[in-house]
Simulated assay, not measured.
Amino acid sequence: MLVAVLVVAATCGAGYRLLAGGDAAPAAEPTDSRPTVTVQEGTLRRSVRLTGTLGYGAPRTVTGAGDGIVTWLPSAGVTVARGRQLYRVDDAPVTLFYGELPLYRELAVPAPPEPPADDGPPPPPVQYQRGNDVDLVARNLAALGFYDGTTRDATYSGSLVSAVRAWQSARDEEPTGVLGPGNVVVSAGPVRVDGLAAQVGDPAAAPVMTVTTTAKVLTLDLLETDAQDVAPGRRIRVTLGDGTVVRTEVQHVGRPTSSDDGSPATVPVVVRPRTGGALAGAESGPVTAVLVTAAHHDVRHVPVTALLALAGGGYALERPDGTLVPVEIGMVADGEVEVDGIETGASVVVAQ
């Protein structure tokens, strides 16, 4: 049994008719000219319309390191892949590597220990550097064809340092074998230069540019209240600027952000097409989407204009012969209301 929703009056405005009497009000005079509809059975969905953008996602800032001077910058809009220079400092390239963490220290071979004095104890063994940053360098040089050693629990010595020197020579750099945060920018993949924050001649240890991914990204803006039940994998249909409808699923739900004008908080939601190539050739710009917030399946429903609101409480539908059928109502969505108490296929009168 459905629970009567007493707020339909507020939801539907003047979409229903009010009988002056109570539940026992007399039936209206049959009028063959009055419009009717058929009670339907199916799925009733409540949804909200969303806006968003097709672009390259949120930009992130690239900040330089070291004491050098910026001597070259790319143009906004260019893409940079692994092993390519992103910008130059002191006329030496700052290169893009792929990975999950930045280089956080200088990698170099320790100086050999001083020989012991006569009859003195032997020097301690050389402690070569290890760590995730060393493995990151090993993986990138392997991908670039300069290194064929281990990329797990690697040591910054021997063949790996030789690979660094060979890579530096190939780039017309001095083959020092030393690599630090000022030489490499680490990203999860190729990047697109979104904008420049520095100019040639600026100190390197400052914001240099902003970058984005190279793939088009669909981002929707949801009210915080609508985003509470949205999780990765949720399916949403998105309409692009040219009218193309793309079936997507939620990839990432961001954090709520509030505007200074007091508007309700919104949540950025990144969605991805369910089929590859769906965004090929699509122009960047605004998009719209429909998010289904609730769905009732296999229910009977009629237009809200078919409802009779009884003054004594409750609701009814009117058959063409004037007979009143009390009904209980449920979900209201897109001008339709869920009803229980009347058979599927029945004809009922609607307000003109």
Rank of each mutant, 00 (worst) to 15 (best):
L2A: 00
V3D: 15
L19H: 06
E29Q: 14
E29N: 09
D32E: 15
V39G: 08
L44F: 09
L44I: 13
V48N: 14
R49I: 04
G52D: 12
T53G: 12
G55C: 10
G55Q: 08
G66I: 05
L73C: 08
G77A: 04
D90Y: 00
T95L: 15
T95C: 10
G99T: 05
L101G: 11
Y104D: 15
V109K: 06
D119R: 03
G120R: 00
V126G: 03
Q127R: 00
G131T: 05
N132P: 15
A138H: 01
L141Y: 01
T150P: 06
S157L: 08
G158Y: 06
W167F: 12
S169L: 14
P175E: 10
A188K: 04
L196G: 04
A197T: 00
A205P: 07
V208F: 05
M209D: 03
M209L: 13
E224K: 09
Q251W: 10
T257G: 03
D261R: 09
G262V: 07
P264F: 09
P264V: 07
T266A: 03
P268S: 03
A280H: 10
A289I: 11
T293N: 11
T293P: 14
H296V: 13
R300G: 12
T305M: 00
L307E: 01
L308S: 01
A309P: 07
L310W: 12
Y315Q: 00
A316W: 11
R319W: 01
P320M: 05
T323L: 11
V327E: 06
I329A: 00
I329Q: 00
M331V: 09
V332I: 04
A333Y: 06
E336D: 15
E338T: 13
V339Y: 12
